[in-house]
Computed example of a mutant assay.
Amino acid sequence: MDSTGNTILVTGATSGIGLGLALRLHKAGNKVIVAGRRQALLDKITTEHPGIESVLLDVSDPQAIQRSSEALSVSHPNLNVLINNAGVIDWEDLTNPDSLATAEAIVTTNLLGTIRMVYAFTPHLIKQPNATIINVSSSLAFVPLPATPTYCASKAAVHSFTQSLRVQLEDTSIEVVELAPPAVRTTLLGQETDEQAMPLEAFLDEIFELLNTTPTPSELVVERTKPLRFAEANGSHAEVLRKLTEYKP
């Protein structure tokens, strides 16, 4: 992925990692379109950062995805990078039937949202001379946090889907990249003051070092993600899972 001169759509970009990526990419000389569910936050971002554009988009709504893909293909014919960052997480009690609604909402946003975005935007991206799809998974795709089972399962599915997508698109102009963040100090799960989570700016620094590598790595994995990413391979999966089991909401 070129570091500048792209037209980039970032979903889930009104806060946290999504907003951080959008601002860094904008500063680097890319045309950035931020997507999110809350118009007030989108308006605030575009007002405070002239040049950034926005689109109201809830990735849990398949009709909204289709409308956005059709509109953006006309308004931004050079759109060549899609970052599927939108995601939700919540605690679940698998012994409580009331948690099922939470689980279903997580799958709809994290997994179906990513899949639907890929299906909707790939026909446009594949026409570009150079294009990139970045799917955001999680370090928890590789070892789950048992208190958030469906979130972890959805991100494991995103990891698997991204591998297949990469193979299917390998003879096209689209490169496929997976970004697997560790716990980062954002409002996700109220981690903004969690000393065990990685500071957002430090995380972004590492990510952009990787993005500026040629060729772009197929997986953007910062140092804090590696103990989980490679736990299965190095035989530490059971130990890491045990530590995560001790983390309670």
Rank of each mutant, 00 (worst) to 15 (best):
M1S: 15
M1L: 15
D2S: 15
D2W: 14
T4P: 05
G12S: 06
G12E: 00
A13P: 05
S15C: 03
G16M: 02
G18M: 06
G20S: 13
A22G: 12
H26L: 15
G29F: 13
N30M: 11
K31R: 13
V32P: 00
V32Y: 01
V32E: 00
V34H: 01
A35V: 01
G36H: 01
G36P: 00
G36L: 00
R37I: 02
R38Y: 03
D43I: 12
I45R: 03
T46N: 00
E48Y: 14
I52Q: 00
D58F: 04
S60G: 13
D61S: 14
P62Q: 13
R67A: 13
E70S: 10
A71T: 10
L72C: 11
S73F: 12
V74C: 10
S75M: 12
S75F: 09
H76W: 08
L79W: 01
V81P: 00
I83P: 01
N84S: 04
N85M: 11
A86H: 01
G87R: 02
D93L: 08
D93W: 08
L100S: 08
L100N: 07
T102N: 03
E104V: 13
V107Y: 09
L111A: 07
I115H: 08
I115M: 15
I115G: 12
R116T: 08
R116G: 06
Y119C: 07
A120Q: 05
F121H: 03
L125C: 03
L125F: 07
L125S: 05
I126Q: 05
K127N: 07
Q128V: 07
N130Q: 10
A131W: 03
T132W: 03
T132A: 09
I133V: 14
S137K: 11
S137R: 09
S138K: 07
S138L: 13
F142C: 10
V143Q: 05
L145S: 11
P146Q: 07
T148Y: 06
T150K: 14
A157N: 10
A157V: 11
S160I: 09
S160W: 09
S160V: 08
F161R: 08
E170V: 12
T172E: 07
I174G: 12
E175Y: 06
V176Y: 14
E178T: 13
A180Q: 05
A180P: 04
T193A: 15
D194E: 10
D194P: 08
M198I: 07
P199V: 12
E201M: 11
A202M: 11
A202Y: 05
E206N: 10
F208R: 03
F208H: 05
F208D: 02
E209Q: 09
L210N: 06
L211A: 04
L211C: 06
N212T: 10
P215V: 05
T216E: 03
S218P: 04
S218G: 07
S218R: 11
V221P: 01
V221W: 11
T225P: 00
R229E: 00
F230S: 04
F230R: 09
A233I: 12
A233Y: 08
H237T: 07
A238T: 11
E239K: 08
V240A: 06
V240I: 15
L241N: 04
K243D: 08
K248T: 13
